[in-house]
Every structure is written in structure tokens, then in C-alpha cells.
Amino acid sequence: ELREAFRLYDKEGNGYISTDVMREILAELDETLSSEDLDAMIDEIDADGSGTVDFEEFMGVMT
């Protein structure tokens, strides 16, 4: 189920989504998050600083 959700956002099928897209997902899930909260969450999610979120990083957030 998580893989299907990931595929919805990984429109190009390249195995990752951008941190911008991940930020939008988080904002949709919790509309009360401030910009600073979102920045901090993205920094934590994208631990390797690649600017992308792969499936493993995505799973870590969603579980």
C-alpha cells in the first residue's frame, strides 16, 4: 500500500520524489504545520541531503 502511494508521487518512475513534493504531502497531511516545521521535517527525512526522498525514506515517514 505504501509503495502504491509512493508511485503516485513518483510520476516519472525514477525511484524518488523531490523534497518539494514531500513537503506538499506533509502539508496536506497536517495543515497546521508551519513552514519552519516543514523545513525541519524535510531535513530529517532527507538525511543524506540529496534533495530527494527515496522509498525507504518515504516509508520511514509514513510508518
Score class of each variant (00 low, 15 high):
M41R: 08
N14E: 04
S50V: 05
L8A: 15
G15S: 02
E31D: 13
L33P: 01
N14C: 05
Y9V: 05
G49F: 05
V53E: 00
G60Y: 15
M59E: 09
A5M: 15
R23T: 01
L8Y: 15
D39W: 06
A47P: 10
E4V: 06
K11Y: 10
E4F: 05
E36Y: 10
K11P: 14
G13D: 08
Y16K: 06
D48G: 06
D20I: 11
R3S: 09
A5L: 15
L33A: 05
L38Y: 02
A5D: 12
D20S: 13
E36T: 10
E12G: 05
F6E: 11
D37L: 08
D43P: 03
Y9Q: 04
A40F: 10
S18I: 04
G15V: 02
V53N: 00
E56Y: 11
S34Y: 03
G51Q: 05
G60E: 12
L8M: 14
V53A: 01
D37I: 10
T19E: 02
R23G: 01
A47R: 13
T32E: 08
I42P: 00
E56R: 09
D10Q: 00
A47T: 10
A27C: 07
A47Y: 09
M22I: 07
L33V: 04
M62D: 02
A40K: 13
A40W: 10
M62A: 05
M22H: 00
I25W: 04
D20E: 13
M62L: 07
E31V: 12
M41Q: 04
S18R: 07
L38C: 02
E57C: 09
D10V: 03
F55E: 06
D20V: 13
T19H: 06
A27P: 01
G60A: 15
D20W: 07
R7N: 15
G15T: 02
T63I: 13
E12V: 04
M22S: 00
S35V: 11
Y16C: 02
I45W: 06
L8V: 14
G15Y: 02
D54Y: 10
G60S: 13
L2P: 03
E57M: 13
M59R: 11
S34D: 06
A40H: 14
F58Q: 00
D54M: 09
F55P: 01
D43N: 14
S34K: 08
L33K: 04
R3V: 10
R23I: 03
F55S: 02
N14I: 09
T52K: 09
I17H: 00
G15N: 04
R23K: 11
G60R: 15
K11D: 06
G13A: 04
L2N: 02
G51T: 03
Y9P: 02
V53I: 15
S35N: 11
L8D: 15
R7W: 11
T63G: 13
A27H: 12
L2C: 15
E56S: 09
E24D: 11
M59F: 12
N14D: 06
F55Q: 03
D20K: 13
F6A: 08
I25E: 00
M59P: 00
A47W: 12
I45G: 02
R3C: 15
L8Q: 15
E57Y: 06
I42R: 00
E56V: 09
F55Y: 10
A47G: 08
G49W: 03
V53Y: 02
G49Q: 11
G60L: 14
I25G: 00
T63L: 14
T63V: 11
F58D: 00
R23Q: 01
G15E: 03
K11W: 10
E44I: 12
G15Q: 02
D43R: 13
D10T: 01
A47M: 09
L2H: 06
M62Y: 07
T63F: 07
D10G: 01
D54N: 13
L33W: 10
A47K: 13
S50Y: 05
A5Y: 15
A40L: 12
V21P: 00
M62Q: 04
T19I: 14
E4I: 07
F6V: 09
D37Q: 13
M59H: 07
T52D: 05
A27D: 02
E56G: 09
A40E: 09
D39A: 08
S35L: 10
T63K: 12
S50K: 10
Y16A: 04
G13C: 06
S18T: 12
E44V: 13
E56N: 11
T19Y: 12
N14A: 07
E4A: 08
E31R: 14
G13M: 06
G13F: 04
E1H: 14
S18L: 07
A27W: 09
L2I: 08
I42H: 01
G15I: 03
V61D: 01
M41S: 02
G51P: 01
E4L: 06
D43Y: 12
T52Q: 09
D43F: 12
D39T: 05
I42K: 01
F58I: 03
Y16Q: 06
T32C: 08
G49P: 02
I17R: 00
F55D: 01
G49R: 12
L38R: 03
M22V: 07
L26S: 00
S18E: 04
D10L: 04
D43I: 12
Y9N: 04
D46H: 03
M41V: 06
G15P: 02
L38G: 00
G51H: 06
M41E: 02
F58P: 00
E28I: 07
E57N: 12
G60N: 13
A27N: 06
E1L: 14
T19N: 12
L33S: 03
A40I: 13
